[in-house]
Simulated scan of single mutants.
Amino acid sequence: MKDDSVIRDEAFWSEGEARDSRWLITCDHATNRVPDWVGSGDLGIAADDMARHIAYDVGAAGVSKKLGALIGAPVVGSDFSRLVIDPNRGEDDPTLLMRLYDGTVIPANRDADAAERQRRLDRLHRPYHNALEKLAGARPDRAICAIHSFTPQLRGRMARPWAVGVLYSHKDERLAPLLIERCRQQGWVTGDNEPYSGHLDGDSIDRHALAQGRPNVLIEVRNDLIRDDAGQAEWAEKLALVMDGLLEEAGL
């Protein structure tokens, strides 16, 4: 079913909710937007920092939308910066409101009290997860593909060699190893739970996939490859290719 309808809310956006693929594409860190009621729309850091990976997953929203359109899957993404409140963290995670990230202090979070944390949870974090779960639960055989991006190099660290990484939890290895094999067959330098581990208690995959037994993968694309529309389109097509028939081959 072709459906390109867009739904927008303060906390999230979705596209193609009526599309008929088993897959749901999610994008937790889709934007660097700061709502005007948080620091008057300013977290107190430089514009250059707001354009970096610390504020959002560069290019991930474009890849998510294009991939969803290619494979006929609904797509849902956050509509607030991860620095406002991180939707890929559980509500009790100490990094929910980051005060320091990759060398940058976040002034608007440094003195955020419990009431401010609760306000951001109520207006942003919870509505996003409610929207995600609504789509995840729209069919009993749902599978989730989370799209993220990673920076080629953290400050003071070694360069990361991977073009793409496939992340997963030890609690569910039904899809990820097969996807990694497919990616490597394409000649891509592919990380196996790199550049970091794919399991974090309370994160989006843990909450919406592992807890319900839904098949899942989390794909990280190096963000210098998807900074512009052409790169996003190229990688959406590449990912559509390696995801084609993945669930069937895995017997799911």
Rank of each mutant, 00 (worst) to 15 (best):
L70V: 08
N109W: 00
L200T: 01
R120Q: 08
D111Q: 15
G165L: 02
Y168V: 07
L178S: 10
D28C: 00
R139C: 01
L247K: 00
G213R: 10
A236M: 04
I25L: 13
R214C: 02
A143V: 03
S64T: 10
E15R: 15
D4V: 01
A73P: 02
P35C: 08
S5H: 15
G90P: 00
G245E: 12
I25G: 12
Q185E: 14
V76E: 07
R126F: 03
D141E: 12
L100Y: 15
D203A: 06
W188Y: 02
R119S: 13
A18I: 05
K238H: 07
L225D: 08
D36K: 12
L218R: 10
G165F: 05
E248L: 06
C183H: 12
G156W: 10
D3Y: 03
E173C: 13
L210V: 02
K238T: 09
A112M: 11
D57Q: 08
L97V: 00
E194A: 03
V34P: 03
L218Y: 01
Y101G: 08
D113S: 05
L24T: 09
P127N: 06
C27M: 11
A209I: 11
L132C: 13
Q118V: 01
E17H: 05
D28Q: 11
S40D: 15
S197W: 09
L247A: 01
A159T: 14
D141N: 15
A69Q: 15
A18W: 02
P152F: 02
M243W: 04
S81C: 04
V58T: 15
K171P: 00
D9R: 07
R174K: 14
S14I: 09
V76L: 12
